[in-house]
């Protein structure tokens, strides 16, 4: 098994944190993993992205030429990457701010209003964690328990309140996907 996922969005939406926390939890589940951020002449308000590979074998290239999943937190991300997704793959998009939908019929599309859901929870910054809940419920790559534990490790023990809101946010995204 080899799964490559691109996380993409505005700088500030926490897309690198999504990728990092996902890679961290995959490592804790015992998988091989690589995390590759886009780097370079980025600008405030520009698009940031990262690629995470998760596998039960050695990972050759951390670059995804045909990613299995795309998490698109803004419209430029969707336009940028929608045609790279492998046939049979999936796109998880932030439907709170992305109006268009991919025209491809060979991939699954999950529209998650994670921006609005985050507002309902009273903290717009947790939209990324809500999205992670939906993404992991659907793909099942790592369990909720392992992911939340990784997230707490990364955030550190200093922020008890952050851990609480993250748990709520993750659960909201997790429950949004009906299986």
């Amino acid at each position: 098994m080899m799964i490559k996922t691109i996380f993409s969005g505005f700088g500030g939406q926490g897309v690198l944190m999504m990728g990092y926390s996902f890679a961290h939890s995959a490592m804790n589940k015992g998988y091989q993993t690589t995390y590759l951020p886009s780097y370079g002449a980025e600008m405030r308000g520009g698009t940031a992205n990262c690629t995470v590979a998760v596998a039960d074998e050695e990972i050759a290239s951390p670059v995804a030429s045909e990613p299995d999943h795309l998490i698109a937190m803004n419209s430029p991300s969707l336009f940028n990457f929608q045609n790279k997704i492998t046939s049979g793959g999936a796109i998880f998009l932030n439907s709170s701010i992305i109006e268009s939908r991919p025209s491809r019929k060979d991939i699954k599309v999950y529209a998650i209003p994670c921006g609005d859901m985050a507002q309902e929870l009273g903290n717009t910054r947790v939209a990324n964690v809500i999205m992670m809940g939906a993404f992991l419920k659907e793909t099942g790559i790592v369990s909720a328990d392992i992911y939340l534990k990784s997230l707490e490790t990364i955030m550190g023990s200093k922020k008890k309140s952050a851990a609480e809101i993250n748990r709520k946010a993750f659960a909201a995204g997790f429950d949004f996907i009906k299986k």
Partner: peptide, 10 residues
């Protein structure tokens, strides 16, 4: 190279 420097792995 830049990829080895930027990439994360366990």
């Amino acid at each position: 190279d830049g990829m080895m420097g930027q990439m994360m792995e366990p």
